[in-house]
Computed example of a mutant assay.
Amino acid sequence: MADEVHIKLATADDAAKVLDFLRQAATESDAVLIPHLADVTAEQERRNIEMINSFDDCVIMLAMLGNQPIGIVTVMVLEKQPNAGELGVVVAKPYWRNGIGQLLVGEAEYWFQNYSSLQRLVLTVFAENVPAIRLYQKLGFRQTGQHRDGQRKVLEMEYQN
């Protein structure tokens, strides 16, 4: 029987795999915007995951195919808006357009509604990323603003219950 994709909360033991996944994904998409990703050690990532898991307003979940992450979703509380969490989603390129992003965002929405202390779920997406925008709209996000990040237009979106 073929392996099935399942979603799990990331644990400190996943740190090295998470780093490997994010570094590979950064070569496949310019939407992976993690500062100093190349410099982060597995031990630092381990501590980051432990810290994230200690708060009720942050979460990191992995889409796993067998023993390997093929997608990740995070919700991180915004420092300047402590009632809002920023959603981040990355799916490995070979798995684009296979429902993995939808699965991850759906899990994040469920966590937001049932477990978090947050009041709002927000995200930013490059305007040319039409498949992602359609997915977010399908899952209840609406555009709340836009701005430029260098030469690129970025849409701001918010989840609506």
Rank of each mutant, 00 (worst) to 15 (best):
C58S: 14
E109Y: 09
Q113D: 11
L62F: 04
V105M: 02
A108V: 08
G101Q: 03
C58Y: 09
V73Y: 01
V77I: 06
A92Q: 02
Y136I: 06
W111A: 06
I133H: 07
N98D: 01
T124W: 04
G66V: 10
N114K: 13
Q81H: 12
V122W: 03
L135P: 02
R97G: 09
M64W: 03
V73H: 06
D56A: 09
N83T: 14
G99R: 00
G71N: 03
V59L: 07
V90S: 13
Y110Q: 11
V105K: 01
P82K: 13
S116Y: 10
R97N: 15
G106D: 08
G101A: 14
A132I: 10
I70A: 04
V105I: 12
I100R: 00
Q119V: 09
I60N: 05
D56F: 06
N83S: 10
L121W: 07
K80M: 12
Y110C: 07
V91R: 05
K80G: 11
L118A: 07
V89L: 05
D57I: 04
Y95K: 01
L104T: 07
I100N: 00
G85I: 10
I133E: 09
L104F: 05
Q119M: 12
Q68F: 03
E109P: 01
V90T: 15
N98C: 02
I100V: 14
P82C: 11
L121F: 07
S116N: 11
D57V: 06
N53W: 02
E128P: 07
S116E: 08
W96Y: 11
A108L: 08
N53E: 07
S117K: 14
L78C: 09
L62N: 03
W96L: 02
V91M: 04
E109L: 15
V90G: 03
T74C: 11
N67W: 01
A127T: 15
A92L: 04
T74Q: 15
F126Q: 14
A127D: 15
N67V: 08
L62T: 00
G66A: 12
G101H: 03
K80C: 10
Q102M: 05
V75G: 01
G71H: 06
S54E: 13
G88S: 15
M64L: 11
G106Q: 11
V89W: 01
Q119H: 12
A84R: 07
V73W: 02
P94S: 10
I133S: 10
E107M: 08
Y110P: 00
N53A: 10
V105P: 00
I70P: 04
